[in-house]
Design a protein around this nucleic acid. Sequence first.
RNA 1: GGGCGGUUAGCUCAGUUGGUUAGAGCACAUGCUUGACAUGCAUGAGGCCACUGGUUCGAGUCCAGUACCGCCCACCA
Length: 909
Amino acid sequence: MAATTELAKAYRPADFEGEIYERWLAADVFAPDGAGSRADQAKEPFVIIQPPPNITGALHLGHALTSTLEDVMIRHARMTGRPTLWLPGLDHASIAAQYVLDKIIAEEGESRESLGRERYLERMWRFINSTREVMLGQQRRIGASLDWSRLRFTMDEGSARAVRESFTRLYRDGLAYRTEALINWCPGCRTSVSDLEVIPTEETGTLWTLRYHLIDEATGEPSPTEWISVATTRPETILGDTGVAVHPDDARYTALVGRTARIPFVERDVPIVADEAVDPVFGTGAVKVTPAHDRTDNETGRRHGLAAITILADDASINELGAGYTGLDRYAARAAIVRDLDARGDLEGAKPHPMLIGRCQRSNDVIEPRLKTQWFVRTGPLAAEALEATRSGRTSIVPPRFEKVWEHWMTSIHDWNVSRQLWWGHRIPAWYCPDGHVTVSAEVGGPAACEACGRPPGDLTQDPDIFDTWFSSGLWPFSTLGWPDETDDLRRYYPGTVMETGYDIIFFWVARMMMLGIHLAENVPFRTVYLHGLVKDPYGKRMSKTKGNVVDPLEAIAESGADALRFALVHGTSPGNDQKFRTEKLDDGRNFANKLWNATRFVLGARPASIPADAPRQAPDPARAGITERWILSRTAAAVEAVDQGMAELQFAEVTRTLYDGIWSEFCDWGLELAKVRLGDASLADDDRAATWWTLVEALDTYLRLLHPVMPFVTEELWAAIPHAADDPDLLIVADWPTPGRRDATADAELGAIVELVRAIRNARAAAGIEAAARLPIDLVVPDALGESYDALAPAIERLTRARPLRRHRSHAELEAAAPSGLAVIAGEIEARVGIDAAGGVDEALPSRERDRLAKELAEAEGFLAAARARLANDAFTSKAPPAVVEGARAREAELAETVDRLRARLAG
RNA sequence: GGGCGGUUAGCUCAGUUGGUUAGAGCACAUGCUUGACAUGCAUGAGGCCACUGGUUCGAGUCCAGUACCGCCCACCA
């Protein structure tokens, strides 16, 4: 097939990236069994689990990184012939979506309340239908080869059914329960949130000390002269106080335990109790107990049978139990209470107090702990199974250090509050009858009757709450494959191979998928958890809209191309580590693509006339291959090995480093430059030039395949332009992954020696200040072992060092005689003289510059030599170090001694 | 209060199981319109590998500790 085609002169990604993506789509190669798939269906499928992005969010660099890493893995797997499944999706993100929509409708003068549940949800659907395409388009722009035929949404019917079914099963298995418990309440979002969504924030508050008067046992009234002082940062909570606690061993208070104190304003008499939880050295050593609004107090209260009195309304104002403060906002009430306490002489003091305040991850409001009747998932048994999975290695975490974090979290886990007092999400499938019975049902229309008393559905009311978004996200690996039905997809693609995401959602998402997957789908959801780091700004700060330091991936793509962005992100990543991102990194990627573009252009243009333009790709004839050809293929083979290893170890930055260096420094800088000589040598036989050209094509073909997972667009475009073999497919995306070729140690070493020589000569010329264009005679001595390679490369050396003529001598004596006055160049075992008599730019100072250069080289060599000798003089070294190491040191010493001798001789003479 | 990272060239980062006097890209200096590429080519300068001890023939690499930066977890009101 494919004849070579013309490439545009300049690399312009925007000209072809979109078109290439369309070609992939048209070829139907993304699906594991798509029409264009060349996968061996007998092979084990490779399945990526991706975090479905929030439907409301704009794509940021974190998404771009996730998409890129996953695409790298999936493309690599696809090229190795495995069926690959990477299922696209979107998350409904209930609290985040409501937060965004609330703001939007506020501008329209509406609110949740004014619209009501039904109209609000209609508005939400309209909103997300408008953002949906944007989100999906962004993934396409970056080149993600997702199987779009399987697009899923966490609010679609498949997910809804999985949610109903899974909750019903958890309830049946005693792992879901409803109870009144202390939850985290966000007054701004008007919902409870999980512990993970509460962000502890360092702030300076005030620690007030105030007096509760003791009840005089004789009169039953508070004593004006007896009191207990307590310290608090939240004076408004005294309205809900039902006790005072002291440490049992605190001698100051022993006598008071068992007595009663009067809470002001609400005029409630509460007991003074002894409890270990109290820290005697903090504050006054006595603590007010508010079981309805504080976690510690709640437990203390429970131990002592204290009542829990809720004093806050949903908007965090004081409710009807707040005596004269009812209706005041919590902070207004706080100020008023402090003022009133002071007025009655019961405020002892106030001082600034550094503390951690829990704020809502979404709205930043201060979270209030309060009692609510909610649904919880019992995490203990689920976490135990998840732990067993990682400990046994059924699922492994990359990088492994996160296993510790995982262990710690899983072993100290609290039950998971899954109720949310929001509207946008999956309604909890629980119905209540007037008699207080609970019926949980997976049926779409609800239960046929109350499970306990048989009351008809008309008498039942469904729980108004919805599930925490992460509940449906946690079902993702199997809810997207048809669960709870035992589908073919589920059998074939569950568990997934790699779950890739940022370490910041390991608890939110990864942990929940593990717990729910093991219990409900009866197997771990994935074999490997790959955690990437965060993309930070150039100063190491988190990117955020408010800081204004976000880089928009779409802008980056428009500016530099998707390949450049992908390269930049992958090049800077290593598992679990954050990366600082600066836009200059995009230039690296773009320049690299440009380099590859031009290298390909050169190869195409250098096709010998003896090869027809439409010739199918053929392997270079080994009999015609010279040292350059053998070296190029050897380096290509080394690249294949290194990339294979990088892919296997999920060290993707290693992959890009290998390819950047291999393509640029080896293939372009030396391979192409050396090949130019043979390609342009009319005296060579056609077959020799053909062998050189086919070598370049072979190497280029391999590099394009290796680079395709990271830079899919430019490689696809370039690959289309080079000759193909008969069994190649039309598109690189489904081409075979390269198999490692033969390494050639001799070629590597001998060509390496010539490279060293060329560099040394260029260095000498530059140091001497010789005009770059000047052609100068070069005389040299080459050891016999290198002779053959040298002779083959002599024309290339001539070209690369601008030598004219280049003369090889048999001995050093001959060299001395032929070129007594040239610049001395010592490159390993090769010694050369650059004749300067005819050089331009030569001045009187040249001899001294030349002496400086040689003196510097000598000093360096002497340093190395001294170190080598010192090591060898050490008996401990020669007797204890491995023989190979000692041998290496001896060889090095000999070589250095030779170099030093020659430099000394030259400087002396 | 526990735990985890990081500290290597001006900047961003590599440095595999310990083995030449430590590498790359960017930035910098100098010189090049060499017919693939100035998004480029060539050459060069630039490092007490945070600090202190230890193990070893040998430490950027292993161990212990210290300092600073960052992150995670945790019910001092």
